[in-house]
């Protein structure tokens, strides 16, 4: 797909936070790569169960991780999921939004896995 060619991650902010520590960058990438698929699976589980409170909590927790990895495209999407789940509105839009998070994160993880060796 054409959209897959757009780079999803931007490590500028993470590098700034690192103060020159590659070890820190590697650690952050490792945690993101391990943690994000689990969080997405949790969102899908809460969506299927109609557990909007837990869905809101999971979306809320994921917000800063997209800022760290510079995934701008998802910063608004995750806020929308949190808002819809918190207020139990537009619930029919949630599956599409969660799918969007899943697709972008899958690509972001691939990019990060490729970039990680340069910091080792």
């Amino acid at each position: 797909m054409e959209t897959n060619k757009i780079k999803q991650t931007d490590l500028t902010y993470l590098k700034e936070l690192s103060n020159g520590s590659n070890e820190f960058i590697v650690e952050m990438i490792t945690v993101f790569v391990e943690q994000t698929p689990l969080e997405i699976a949790n969102m899908e589980k809460h969506l299927a169960a109609g557990d909007w409170k837990s869905l809101r909590a999971t979306a809320h927790k994921m917000k800063p991780s997209f800022s760290f990895m510079g995934i701008k495209e998802l910063e608004g999407v995750i806020k929308t999921i949190e808002d819809y789940a918190a207020n139990e509105k537009n619930l029919d839009l949630l599956p599409g939004l969660i799918l969007k998070v899943k697709e972008v994160c899958t690509q972001a993880i691939e990019e990060l896995v490729q970039e990680k060796p340069q910091f080792l």
């Binding site: 650690e27 952050m28 993101f32």
Partner: peptide
């Protein structure tokens, strides 16, 4: 509870 934020 966010390990990524905690590490940062």
């Amino acid at each position: 509870d966010d390990l990524l934020f905690l590490k940062a």
